[in-house]
Nucleic acid binder design. Structure first.
Lengths: 150, 150
DNA sequence: TATAATTCGGACATTCAGGTCTTTAAGTCT
DNA sequence: AGACTTAAAGACCTGAATGTCCGAATTATA
């Protein structure tokens, strides 16, 4: 709903990397197995992220992928723009052209503030937030298992 | 961004119908020419809306399509759900399963309020609002043409 | 230097949304 | 009844997104 399938894969892979210690590379195989992603396809997506400057990569033994920036410095918006481009976010909700503040489409006045809010959300949410969310979830699962006597 | 291409066509066709007097049917050809939509394809989409109960249709001479409800009673959400289904709107933003309030995904807490807002927006916006927006736009265009001396 | 490990890159396969075309069924009019 | 108009339904086509496969390029290590 917010972004494409490709982009979702990118977010998940990046979130996985954000949870790992900052030194050294992580294998594609490890990422895709942990996150249950299609391996070859994800390889291409990660490569796109390399070209976009969000990841570093290294070939050969002890190679793999690593974040090119600290998790605080990578926002969802950057990921979306690297993978999907910016087109969707600025597009008119009804698809009528031309559509601008001067020549608004039927939904323009009401839709625009909401769209701005969505964009802000993507801009403010970083990989750190995502990684923190994952560890919070992990704890909840552990607690659930403990209390249910497993 | 909010809904699929099919759904956008549906919204535009419905908006066109909402601007017409309530009696009688409107030809598919008229709708698609006025809104510049692919004719055969739009026929299928309109038929989906008939099955969903948002439109009525009639074959033969003086046949065509008409709203099954007054424009105030058809919300964008109903259109989206008739065409795209409800899946996207309730889906977890990151695509992790399971994802619920008890077992939230990394984005759950922050994404959910925004998603609720989007849903509310779709629910509160009706065909009447859209039709009103169109006539507002039409006036703006006329005024622009008048002042530019055309 | 040889070898193994790993990403890179392109060719190919599959699936799905978008879209056209043709035939059929259901109405209206004379 | 017969001719005509129009939506309904289905077969088919197209292009983009998704995904696989395999060889080439690169690099650490023995």
């Amino acid at each position: 709903m917010l972004y494409s399938g490709r982009c979702e894969y990118a977010v998940r892979a990046l979130t996985y990397l954000a949870q790992k210690p900052a030194n050294g590379f992580t294998l594609l195989a490890e990422i895709t197995e942990a996150e249950d992603l299609p391996r070859a396809f994800s390889g291409k997506i990660l490569h796109d992220l390399v070209r976009a400057g969000l990841l570093r990569s290294a070939r050969g033994p002890s190679g793999g992928y690593a974040l090119a920036l600290p998790p605080t410095d990578i926002s969802l918006l950057q990921v979306v723009q690297s993978i999907d481009g910016t087109a969707d976010l600025d597009r008119c909700a009804v698809g009528l052209n031309p559509c601008s503040d001067e020549m608004p489409c039927p939904l323009h006045d009401t839709w625009k503030p909401l769209r701005t809010e969505i964009k802000q959300y993507l801009e403010e949410t970083t990989l750190l937030d995502l990684a923190a969310g994952v560890s919070r979830k992990r704890k909840l699962i552990e607690r659930a298992n403990a209390t249910s006597g497993v």
